[in-house]
Design a protein around this nucleic acid. Structure first.
Lengths: 205, 205
DNA sequence: CATTATAGCGAACGATCGGTCGCCTGTCAA
DNA sequence: TTGACAGGCGACCGATCGTTCGCTATAATG
């Protein structure tokens, strides 16, 4: 009864769908990758589409649990340098964590075919990050670390370039070191431009 | 001899591949959409893969002709308002032109499967726009319209958010008006933040 | 006018697709 | 001990896939 086969099928589906797409994946291969023959798959899911639906359910639940709840929000940095640290930790995780990478690839590939994937893609790629940093920047403005401005707009200006670099990492993983360096460079550029006064703490550069 | 069937097949392939992906497209439907039966397709292309290759060739050539040559670069604006106009014209075109939209969707979908698509995707989504605006901003800095800074970094900070909104338009076309409004808002925000002095022309807002 | 190449067509091919079926085995409750 | 059942298996199904083939009509070429 306590079989994890269902979860292993879903994990394999995430892997194969994210590499070959839904249409490009066949059940025989999928089943084989978890050590089954394809007919056994149908003991756990009624159809290929049902696997897709269950996978999307899981992805949505995972996103909600990981990024959705307010207590999962990152703390408001106490200094510009802490913003760099926070950002780099977040980006480093997001481009290296296999499950997150595969989820993003899958959403990228299937966003035009499935309405729920489309909605989740927009969250992952745009609104999620922006909303998160809207609060962060709002807090930093309160602390006098950032020039007063519309926090949502500033967050958008901050997260969109970072999101673009994350996409680059997904597309060309060999460029990850380069992209991480560019992320940090952009982050410091951002602080220079948006930081309170334009000079705070270290003027030296 | 002067048959345009080959080009019509490629156009249909762009359409169907961009909606259903390479694996999700079948030759019967593709042929039918140009008024042929599938076997006739093989008078023009040796295989499905050959259609894909030819389509990619065309896309690469089209990109080179449209955005690659230096004389296709936009003029350097003479005022911040001109930057808004230039940007809005460019974005408006790029989210409405069917061929460009389909090309972008296709690259989005197939970027993980094909090396050439991957490279073209990076150009389309990241480096192309950034390089283009690096020159624009370099010129604007020379004219004293923008604060002196690394033009490439500024261009990246400018184009990445715009690129994100373009992607949003591809994903959720019903949000195009909203996205265009946000594009303009971001553009004006950018000018406010990066503009020379921080006050130029209209202080009134 | 005869010939030949082009570009369409329908029929058919083998392979592979998602999905069903019957069978077998191990686990566990009655 | 026995019966039910979950969960594996191989064989098989019809549909559809990309691809090939032979035929034909048309248009250009000699």
């Amino acid at each position: 009864m306590a079989s994890d086969t269902r979860e292993r099928i879903l994990a394999a589906a995430l892997d194969m769908f994210s590499r070959n797409g839904y249409a490009g994946t066949n059940i025989r291969e999928l089943a084989a990758s978890v050590g089954l023959v394809k007919s056994s798959t149908y003991k756990h899911f009624g159809s290929k589409e049902e696997i897709w639906d269950a996978l999307l359910d899981e992805m949505i639940a995972y996103y909600g649990a990981r990024f959705g709840s307010p207590d999962r929000l990152p703390p408001v940095p106490d200094s510009p340098e802490e913003l760099v640290t926070l950002t780099m930790r977040l980006v480093d995780f997001t481009v290296h964590d296999e499950k997150v990478v595969k989820t993003r690839k899958l959403l990228t590939i299937e966003q035009f075919r499935d309405g729920r994937a489309r909605a989740l893609a927009t969250k992952h790629f745009l609104t999620g990050l922006t909303e998160m940093f809207t609060r962060v920047f709002s807090g930093m403005m309160d602390k006098g670390l950032l020039r007063r401005d519309d926090p949502a707009m500033v967050a958008f200006a901050y997260t969109a370039p970072i999101s673009a670099l994350i996409h680059l990492c997904d597309r060309e993983p060999e460029k990850i070191p380069e992209a991480l360096a560019q992320t940090e460079a952009f982050c410091r550029h951002f602080i220079k431009v948006y930081g309170a006064r334009g000079q705070d703490g270290e003027e030296s550069r």
